[in-house]
Structure formats: C-alpha cells, structure tokens
C-alpha cells in the first residue's frame, strides 16, 4: 500500500446506509466477530474488476440510495449492482462499466429503481482503518469502515483512497453479468443436515411455494413470509452458522442469514443458499417474491468456482 493519504470524495449528503466493504473479516468468528463483507458478492467483485482492482479491495456499498459524493480529484470509478437512480453531475451515471470522473464532479444516489444495493469502486481502492484484518464495516459490532469504529458515512466526511498503480483500461461487464433484480427469482439452496426433520408437506412447500421478502430485512438476515414450515426440531444447541443458512424458527417463517449474521445460533435449517444466491437475495426489496430450488454440491461448486475464476 502507498503511504500517501489521498482524499477521494467529500460526503455532501449522507444517505441512510453506506458502508465500506472488503471481502470480509475472516479468522475471527471464534471471538464472536461476524464475517461482514459485501452483501452482494457478485456486484462487489465486478465493481473492483471494472475499476482495475484486485479481489478484496475495499468498495463502498450503498443501500437504498440518498448518498451524494463530490469528487475531490480526478479518478477512475465503477458502479455496479442496484440502479438507485444514480446521477453523475446531471446525467444518469452508467453502471457496469469503467468511468472517468473529474475533480468537482458529483455522484448522487436517488432511490431504488432496480435492486437495493449499489457498489462504488474507485481505482486503487478506498482506504479504511483495518480492524482484525479487515475494513469491512459492521455497524452492530462497531468495527471497520473509514474510522475503524463501524460508522456509516456522515455528511462532511472526507473519504480517503489509494493512488492506483495505473489508470485501468475501459471495460464493460458482459451483458449476462449485468443483473436485473426486478423479476421474481429462484435461489439455489444446498440442503442441510436438518432437512429430514421437516415434514413432507413443509418440504414440498419450501421448494414449491412462493416466498415474499419481508420488511424485516437487513445485512444480518432476510425474513421471508409464506406457508408455515413445520420441523420436528424446535431448537438445537447453538452452533456456528455459515453464510446463506436458511433457518426456520418455531413460527415456521424462514430467515436467510447474510454477512452480518450472529456467529452462532440454534434454529433448525433447511440448508444454505449458495453465495451467489445469497448475493441475489440481498438485492431484493421488501414485497418481492422468490422461490427456492434444491441444488447438488457438484453443480453448486462448479458454478461458484466459475464465478471466482473470473476475479481471483
């Protein structure tokens, strides 16, 4: 890393939730510290790629919109993920491609048009205060982010960036990778150990019914509403929870657990969403509908490795 501390942006309007996210905080979950990292791994990875950054570089995750940034220098950036009505000065900002901006330019995020979370990468990467090996910002734990204290962005704050090694080439993500988040989706789920404890009707419904994304959705987890699932196990002795676990509390309404989930828990689980299915869920707005599809490990691993191959 270069030693120089460059100011990249000034926050001229703080939205409800803008968080710095690198790949996440690893090797510390035994301390009760959660994983963090981008809720949408797919869009985050593309943002870095298009800005010429290696895997793991810190990116800004903007949820809902509302944020406005003023560039303090000429920079190369990339915007991916949700369309939050983003403007570059007075024009609609192009997404899913490399973009050069100039000192004094404004990036203004509106409200969700398509998806929920947008990713802003800057060539060289944002520069946060690493805590326990990561700058991933987890508000609940007061860890990470620009100040290391887990704060979301505040008005007037200056955002530091690293000097890029070189100006990245202009790139556009393939159209097949530019996601449309508006349509009902089907999420791949790897069945887990307690799946046989759900009764037959519940299993049928889990994979055939339509599930609705509830208002109670954040970076910890997304609650889904639909038919009531019944499991012979009501609670387990608490155990580690992996990314994308779909737990079913006694009310029978599943909760898919995302990056900021608690490290251990004791509800029976249908299984785990694949990392990319969890990413897709993180772009769903309350009220959107989805289905689950059981997927085998070979297919899921092949699919995930193909994705990682592009970036790592």
């Amino acid at each position: 890393m270069r030693a120089t501390n460059l100011i990249g942006f000034r926050v001229s309007r703080a939205g409800p939730l803008a968080l710095l996210q690198d790949a996440g905080r690893f090797g510390v979950r035994h301390l009760g510290v959660t994983q963090g990292g981008p809720a949408d791994l797919h869009a985050w990875a593309w943002a870095n790629r298009l800005a010429g950054n290696p895997w793991g570089t810190a990116v800004l995750e903007v949820t809902f919109g509302g944020l406005e940034l003023v560039a303090e220098r000429d920079m190369t950036i990339a915007l991916t993920g949700a369309d939050l009505g983003i403007h570059h000065n007075l024009q609609t900002a192009p997404r899913w491609r490399t973009l050069a901006i100039s000192a004094g330019d404004t990036l203004s995020f509106g409200t969700p048009v398509n998806g929920l979370r947008a990713y802003l990468a800057v060539a060289g990467g944002f520069r946060g205060d690493s805590v326990l090996g990561s700058v991933a910002c987890v508000v609940r734990e007061q860890l990470g982010g620009f100040d290391g204290q887990g704060n979301t962005l505040r008005e007037g704050e200056m955002l530091t960036v690293n000097q890029p090694e070189a100006t990245p080439a202009n790139q556009t993500a393939p159209e097949s990778e530019q996601r449309d988040y508006r349509h009902p989706t089907t999420l791949d789920l790897l069945p887990g150990a307690q799946i046989a404890a759900f009764n037959g009707r519940s299993l049928f419904e889990a994979f055939n019914a339509e599930w609705r994304v509830d208002q109670r959705a954040d970076r910890m987890g997304v609650r889904l509403t639909g038919p009531r699932l019944q499991c012979a196990i009501s609670t387990l002795v608490s155990e580690g929870i992996s990314l994308g676990a779909v737990q079913v509390p006694p009310d029978g309404q599943p909760i898919a657990l995302l990056n900021d989930r608690q490290t251990i828990g004791g509800y029976p689980r249908l299984g785990n969403l694949t990392p990319l299915a969890a990413s897709r869920l993180a772009q769903c707005l309350p009220g959107q509908t989805l289905r689950f599809r059981a997927v085998g490990i070979d297919r899921a691993l092949r699919h995930h490795r193909r994705f990682l191959q592009i970036f790592r």
Binding site: H30, S238, E239, G240, I241, I264
Partner: peptide, 13 residues
C-alpha cells in the same frame, strides 16, 4: 477461513 467452536460442534469454514 474460519473455525467456529460451540457447545457440541465445530464449524469448519
């Protein structure tokens, strides 16, 4: 990547 010990289990990531 991670080890999460709990009462009766160890989650190996």
């Amino acid at each position: 990547l991670d080890l999460v010990p709990s009462y009766t289990t160890l989650l190996v990531v």
